[in-house]
Design a protein around this nucleic acid. Structure first.
Lengths: 215, 215, 215, 215
DNA sequence: CATGAATGAGCCTTCATTCAT
DNA sequence: GATGAATGAAGGCTCATTCAT
């Protein structure tokens, strides 16, 4: 499973030509969007923080919205990156004997991602409801893909007798809620609280494992 | 535990004098705010949808923001209403022998609330991050109150030997995530999906009860 | 020569029916107009200060401008009241042997008027340039009348050999400037300065008398 | 004593960068402010008269008020420019043997200034009462400075035995009123009247000289 | 006669976007 | 490629005036 740190860096590698200025623009945009929201951020403000002329923004991004999308779309992709490894069942056979091990690996992996990219995830969460294209892309690409992969994994471990029968929708939702709830509390709502991550994650995994194996 | 339906109605009862026009303004604002977000909604648009002159909005609410707050503040209050019954331990002794029964009652109660007030809850969630006063009020009034009540309840049932020891923070987060995750999936993300609520709730309660009683 | 104190009172006597409310409105309007200027004063503000409903203002005065005129027009009239006594030459023969006595009487009379009505005079001065009707009325009624009367008076004392020959325009302007300059300094620009009125007036009269009698 | 013609030109020279558009805006603003008053002038109107977009005004002046101040503040400075020559007593010794000569020079100088800048002076006079910062700046900078210089001058000629003893406040007020009265009549109240400036100024100087030397 | 809710035109200001330099 | 002056539509808000009660 690949290590990905701050998306902004990856994001800049993806595109062929990235001026120093363009990088400054993206950094400024990410920071202000996350702080005040897309609609309440002016391009003038971004330009100032980035140290470029307002016109320069529009040389790189046709519209303000395109700037937003250039941030949000890659974030969405990276968000599910670990779930779209092609031959996931092989991974499972090879690396993780038990569902619990798999779960722990995924949680740790996404925790790192969340930690490194919280500002961009915030923007993603805030803006999805207001941009139908984003919503649709999210539902179709992200939601569906995760669901499909998860189903394979889930059935894999059910076949192994490690998990009781339950519809994938429900189990995914229950597990997803628990993990996402933790990550949001940890990195969005109360990042300054004194967290004992190891213990919390153990507790969470135990909660999930027992929860889905209720008799 | 009180029945509360659509807040908008209660909201209108709270204030002594509520013109027909004012009601129209509130309804229109709630709908458009929830659809496009506060910052992207123009007062002109609200006025048109409400069928009043733009000036009329400002006769009732000094600023656009005051209009937002007049919607969001009561929503916050009603959101936690069931948790601020004064003598909650009595309620527990009298009404709910088992933690599971209590949990089921709370879930059902908040599910009704969520169902009736999803538009306003959406606005609340969207706007809290961008309005420090709201954030603070939420943290202090809502967060703290719920946590305190929950701790009493939790220790009540722990004393009865029904629940294993676990810090209230963690258990509240785990239970909260699960329930909120369900309500958001149910009424925000996929309200049109064909839900079997009874089964999902049973599954969720079983998930939680087993989860927190892991040995 | 008649004694007239605060115009507002006279103003109210002139009109047949003056409600208590109407008086309140006028008082409020005078105060705020003088403080912030006509254009920057809102009828809402006047209504609040007067303790009446905004509609009440428009019951008594068709428009905001009519309210202004109802204040300014009488002020203009009273301002020149002492100069339109019909048989002024009789007055002169009877009451004032010397031009200096006449001058002193006029100064003292207008000083009292200025003292009692400075707020309204301020409004008059401020608004005249922006309302052609006022300007015209001022020029025609006030300016002309004063000039005519002054000419009679001036020639009266010239005939008596008390004053040297000089065009009435010039002498009126020189005397008028001196007196008005004093009254404005005294009651508008530096009313809080510690004035010795008697001495200043003596000095001014001496200045004028010597000035116009230059050889 | 320096020659200064229309302030607007000087005003534009003062600032390094003055777009053609900015000049148009200033010209338009000066004209309309003077005609209708600051409060009754809309930025839209200024923009139209200047032939620019309304937004352009706010690119150069953050607010409408800043536009006003950018006109009024320099006017105030230029208004007293001739009085703040550093070594004024030298000027007196060198250039003007008699007070009368000095007086005549000042009058002529300020007459030219008034003639060239009457619109801006009008605005200054109209707006000072309603903007406390202006009032204060006027009192402190302008009023005080003129008074101080005048006192020096006055005492200079008193020492020479050309003028009788009189408090500087009074004499300045008497002389100032006379001169200002003339300039206002000449250029504000009745500019279209057929003035014989030479004669009027002679008359005025004779009026003042005799007035202050009353025995 | 008095009220004050309602109006809608108009105000100052902001903002994404364009384009000549 | 980068700039920033210029644009003009749109935004939030104010205000004189009307009118049903």
């Amino acid at each position: 499973m690949p290590e990905d740190h701050n998306i902004l860096d990856l994001l800049l590698d993806d595109q062929e030509q990235v001026t120093e200025k363009q990088k400054k623009i993206l950094e400024a945009a990410v920071e202000i969007f996350s702080e005040k929201g897309y609609a309440s951020t002016s391009t003038n403000e971004i330009a100032k923080k980035a140290g470029v002329a307002e016109g320069t923004i529009f040389r790189h991004y046709k519209t303000k919205k395109e700037l937003l999308l250039s941030i949000v779309a890659p974030t969405m992709t990276k968000l599910i990156a670990p779930f779209i490894i092609n031959d996931i069942s092989k991974v499972l056979n090879t690396d993780y004997d038990r569902f619990e091990d798999f779960l722990r690996a995924v949680i740790e992996n996404r925790r790192k991602f969340a930690k490194d990219n919280m500002t961009m995830i915030k923007i993603l969460i805030q803006e999805i409801p207001f941009h139908p294209e984003l919503k649709e892309q999210f539902m179709k690409n992200i939601g569906k893909k995760i669901f499909d992969r998860f189903t394979i994994v889930f059935e894999h471990y059910q076949a192994k007798g490690q998990i009781k029968k339950m519809p994938a929708e429900s189990s995914l939702r229950l597990i997803g809620s628990t993990v996402i709830g933790y990550l949001m509390a940890r990195y969005m709502i109360a990042p300054d609280f004194d967290w004992d991550d190891e213990q919390e994650i153990n507790r969470m995994i135990s909660f999930i494992m027992n929860g889905i194996n209720a008799e």
